[in-house]
Design a protein around this nucleic acid. Structure first.
Lengths: 213, 213
DNA sequence: CTTCGCTTGTGAATACTTTCACAAGCGTGC
DNA sequence: GCACGCTTGTGAAAGTATTCACAAGCGAAG
C-alpha cells in the first residue's frame, strides 16, 4: 500500500500540522482543505491530495476534525514523541541552535553538544554540557542521540558526519556550506543560508517580470 | 529567449559555482560535467541541461573552462557584486548571522541591524550598530538595504516583512517559523530549522526500506 | 590528414507533481 | 424524508523536471 511520499508533500504536512496545532489551541473543531491551503501557501486540491496519500480523514460537507487530523499527521511524521538531538560545533550557529527554544517546544530535545575548542568543553550552555568531539561515539551511544546537527566548519563536516553515522545516529541536519553525500544510508539535509541568499540574488538580478511582455 | 528557470536549477547553479570557485583557487583550468556532478549530487546530464538553459559554455571533448564558467554563473546569479543586507531581530539566530563570516566572503555584506530591545539598540555587534526597529524605513533607505533577513519572533514576522517591503527592500529571507506570503511582489524564502528536523523525523519513522521487498 | 577517445548539447522519453473537475456523501432545515 | 449547500476524495489532464541516448565536435596522436 505504501507509496513513495515526496519531500514537498512532507514539507507541506509539517505546515498543515503547525496550523492545526494553532487551531487546536484556539479550540477550533473543524477546518476545511481551503482554510488549510490559505495559510500554508498551497491549494485546496493539494491539501486533499496530500492527505489522501495516507487515508481518508475528512468528512464531506464539513471538513477535517482538527484534533484528529493533527494527531494523524503527528503520527505520519513521527512527531508524537520527542526526538533526541545532538549538536556538533558550538560556534555561532551551533550555539544559537542550542538555545533555540522552539526546537524543544516542537519535539526536538538537545541532549548532547560537542566541540573541539578546550575553552568550550566542559562548560554547560543552555543546560547542555559540551563534550569533546573525541568522545562523540561514546556520548552518542550513552545519550541515545537519534538526530545530529552538524554545525562545524565546512572542511570538518564530512568527517564528522561519517563518524556520527557510524556511531549510530539515524539522520543528519547539516549547516556546513558543503554538500554531504555518500554518508552510509543515513539521510542528510543541508541548510545553507548563503545558498538561499544566492537564490534571492538571482531573482533580484532578473529583469523584473512585467505584466506587459 | 528567456525561459523560466526553476528554483532547483538555481540552487544547483549555486553549488556548481561553489565548486568552480574552489577549482579556480586550485588553479584547475578545465572541468567536465561529470566532475561537477560528482561533488554536487547531480547527474552529468543535469549539469549540462542546467547550463544549456543559459547558453553554450563548454568545449566538446574537453569540458568547461573553470574561470569562464565561474564568471558566467556569477553573472547569471547576480553574484559579481556585493549585496547589501539588513537583519531584523538580533536574538540568537539574528546575532549568529550577523557574525557569520561566510556571508561577507560570499558577497553578502550586513550593513544594518534592527531590534526592539533597548538593551541592544545602539550597541555595535560585529561592527554593525543596532538600530531601533522604529527606524527601519529610514535606515533601509539610507543604507540602501537590498535584501533583508527577518529573524524576529513569529508573531512579529509578517508585520516586519511588510514594512521592509514597503521601505524598498527587494527580497526577504525569513527565519521565523511562519509562512510569509502576500508580501507585495517581494520574493520571500523561508528557512525553518524545525521543518527540516520534521522531515528527518518522517524518514526515521518509516519502516526502513530494505532491499528485499 | 585521419582516426580515436572523450565530452558537450539536446531532442525524445520517462518520471514526477500539480491542477482540474466532478461524483459521492454529509448534515441541516424544512 | 427530501432537497440543498458545501466539502471531500480522486481519476484524468496538464504541466514540470529529470534521465536517456546519441549526433556533433574538439584535440591529441600518429
Amino acid at each position: 500500500m505504501s507509496v513513495r511520499i515526496s519531500d514537498s508533500t512532507v514539507r507541506r504536512l509539517s505546515l498543515y500540522l503547525r496550523m492545526l496545532r494553532d487551531l487546536r489551541e484556539q479550540q477550533v473543531a473543524l477546518v476545511s482543505s481551503s482554510q488549510l491551503a490559505a495559510r500554508t501557501g498551497a491549494t485546496s486540491a493539494q491539501v486533499r491530495k496530500d492527505l489522501s496519500l495516507f487515508g481518508s480523514f475528512g468528512k464531506r460537507g464539513r471538513g477535517y476534525d482538527v484534533d484528529q487530523l493533527a494527531a494523524t499527521i503527528e503520527d505520519i511524521l513521527g512527531l508524537s514523541r520527542t526526538w533526541r538531538v545532538g549538536i556538533v560545533g558550538v560556534g555561532k550557529i551551533g550555539g544559537a541552535l542550542l538555545g533555540y527554544a522552539d526546537m524543544l517546544r516542537r519535539g526536538f530535545e538537545v541532549v548532547a553538544a560537542f566541540d573541539t575548542d578546550p575553552a568550550k568543553i566542559g562548560r554547560a550552555i543552555f543546560g547542555v554540557r559540551v563534550a569533546p568531539l573525541a568522545d562523540v561515539e561514546r556520548v552518542v551511544r550513552e545519550e541515545d542521540v537519534e538526530i545530529a546537527i552538524v554545525a562545524t566548519p565546512p572542511d570538518a563536516a564530512h568527517d564528522v558526519a561519517q563518524r556520527l553515522a557510524d556511531a549510530g545516529v539515524g539522520a543528519i541536519l547539516n549547516f556546513a556550506p558543503i554538500e554531504l553525500h555518500g554518508i552510509d544510508g543515513v539521510p542528510v539535509r543541508t541548510v545553507d543560508v548563503v545558498l538561499e541568499l544566492e537564490g534571492l540574488s538571482y531573482l533580484l538580478s532578473r529583469p523584473p517580470a512585467r505584466e506587459t511582455d
